Computed example of a mutant assay.
Amino acid sequence: MKIVLASDHAGVALKKEVSELLVSMGHEVNDLGPFSSDAVDLSDYVYPAALEVAKKKADRGIFIDGVGYGSALIANRVLGVDAVVCQDPFCAKLARQHTDSNVLCLGGKIIGSAIALDIVNVWMTTDFLAQEKYIRRVNKVKEISKKHLRSLDEI
């Protein structure tokens, strides 16, 4: 799978560990930065990465900031991105099984690297439960997005 990574300065160290894990799992990783702990604006990195997912240039994205919510707020503004914040492996499993999420957001200041890597592993290896009730629910959310967000070809 092609995975795009992005962060802000608070997520750089954890992003490097996540990248190494993904490569060891056989995934192709595209890290859009940043690459140092110098202060940056999160949207400068997460927005282009979210576009990569929406344009299907990446199968999934993993974005890391201080708590994860900033990344999710930015990413979910892009039609075709379904970003979730997970702080434990159980949430990561349900986020894939029930919502078919394509972007995982992590908080580099909230969770340690051991738990973060476990979350990534679970999220990456869990499939969507393509049962009627979950398909129906996911489709309802997609319809809401289509109603309120512009498609990329309109931008």
Rank of each mutant, 00 (worst) to 15 (best):
S151E: 04
N76G: 01
D118L: 03
G66E: 07
A6S: 12
D44M: 03
G112L: 02
V18Y: 08
M1Y: 12
A116E: 11
A13H: 01
I119H: 11
L22V: 07
N121K: 15
A58K: 03
H27D: 06
G108I: 09
G112C: 13
G11K: 08
Q87R: 12
Y45C: 09
A6L: 03
D88L: 07
R96Y: 02
L117A: 04
D8I: 01
G26V: 08
V12R: 13
I135M: 09
V85R: 05
K133F: 05
L149F: 12
F128A: 08
K2W: 11
E132T: 05
A92D: 03
K56Q: 01
I155Q: 01
Y69M: 14
A92R: 00
D41A: 06
D41R: 00
V53E: 05
V67E: 15
E20T: 00
L152Q: 06
G70V: 02
E28F: 01
H9M: 12
K57D: 09
L152D: 03
H148A: 03
D65E: 05
G112S: 00
I111E: 00
D153W: 13
T125M: 11
K93I: 12
D65P: 15
I64P: 14
K15C: 02
G68H: 12
W123G: 15
A130Q: 02
A72T: 01
D59N: 14
N121L: 02
I3W: 09
K140T: 13
L79W: 14
C91L: 10
V23Y: 08
V84F: 10
P89V: 04
C105D: 01
F63D: 06
I135S: 07
M124T: 01
V78H: 05
K15V: 06
H27Q: 01
K146D: 12
L22E: 15
N139E: 04
L42P: 06
L149W: 10
R137Y: 02
V81D: 00
L106K: 14
